[in-house]
């Protein structure tokens, strides 16, 4: 009986692995496609029906992209520099501000707590597109248009990040915090030493999501920034691909640019996703 069940388990596990492998391969398709697409020569880009894999890889798309950018007044590196500054500042700001807010909402009692919670739920439903114009008026009203702040500030109060973090910080047992308090920890030490490490998986998730949103954002550059030297990389790539959309060589450039926009996403993802895995099991978190 016992032997039979273990064999059954083993068989089940094998089929499970096969199913997972199939699904996982499927998950990789977009990445495979992106990489192959960027290295396709022109004649392969326009094949019909479109081919998934490249048969004669070439770097000419990247060369074209490079040549197209070298004639511009503002160098390509300037956009890249702007993007790096904006993304890194926003990432740090969002993580700090939202985990602080989530800690307060999950673990403190105060007036209006339920009001703020319901406000978060309500604002979750509001897509950024619908509040573009009021936001524009505010940005110009407080006088931060044409500064880096116009890129950064609208992202900071992200309701989604707080919403995700509240649930995880809420799981941290109160007794752990109380014990630290009795040992004389200040609120800030408790936050930094207990809450942040224990919520690391959720914080990493927030970091990944925020990076995606900010790195790919063209709204700020389009609406709030008029100074060309302060715009970011995705905006530049968007204008480039719009300008060359109808040209045959443009398709190759778009594919190359798409890959270039995607690679940082992949890198950040790989960096943070390991943190997501860190188990809370061994830390004795649950009561």
């Amino acid at each position: 009986m016992h032997v039979m069940t273990t064999r059954k388990v083993r068989l089940g596990r094998l089929s499970l692995l096969i199913a997972l492998t199939g699904l996982a391969l499927f998950m990789m398709l977009p990445i495979v496609f992106l990489f192959n697409h960027a290295f396709k020569p022109l004649n392969e880009l326009f094949l019909f029906p479109p081919r998934f894999l490249v048969s004669n890889p070439t770097a000419q798309n990247f060369e074209r992209l490079w040549n197209a950018t070298s004639d511009d007044l503002v160098p390509f590196t300037r956009y890249l520099f702007n993007s790096v500054i904006v993304v890194s500042t926003t990432l740090v700001a969002v993580v700090v501000v939202s985990s602080m807010a989530a800690y307060a909402l999950a673990k403190f009692k105060f007036h209006f707590r339920s009001v703020i919670m319901s406000l978060i739920y309500v604002s979750l439903m509001f897509a950024a597109e619908t509040v573009q114009i009021p936001r524009y008026l505010i940005i110009s009203g407080i006088g931060v248009s044409d500064t880096y702040f116009a890129h950064i500030l609208p992202f900071i109060a992200a309701p989604v990040s707080v919403f995700l973090l509240i649930q995880f910080i809420g799981q941290i047992p109160d007794s752990l915090l109380e014990a630290a308090k009795i040992d004389g920890a200040t609120e800030w030490t408790m936050f930094m030493r207990i809450v942040v490490p224990l919520a690391a998986p959720a914080i990493s998730t927030v970091a990944i999501l925020t990076f995606q949103a900010v790195w790919g954002d063209t709204e700020a550059s389009t609406l709030y920034i008029h100074e060309e030297t302060l715009k970011t990389l995705p905006y530049y790539i968007q204008t480039l691909s719009q300008a060359t959309q109808n040209a045959v060589s443009g398709q190759g450039m778009i594919a190359a640019a798409g890959l270039m926009m995607f690679v940082p996403n992949l890198i950040v993802f790989l960096l943070f996703q390991n943190r997501v895995m860190e188990t809370m099991v061994n830390s004795g978190i649950k009561e």
Binding site: A104, I156, V162
Partner: peptide, 28 residues
Amino acid sequence: KEYSVGYMFLLPWTIGFAVFMAFPIGWS
């Protein structure tokens, strides 16, 4: 005193939220 700590943690986010979420939504 107990509440104020919570407020301090919440403050930066609240400001951002009021200016860039709540207000634009109300405006719309």
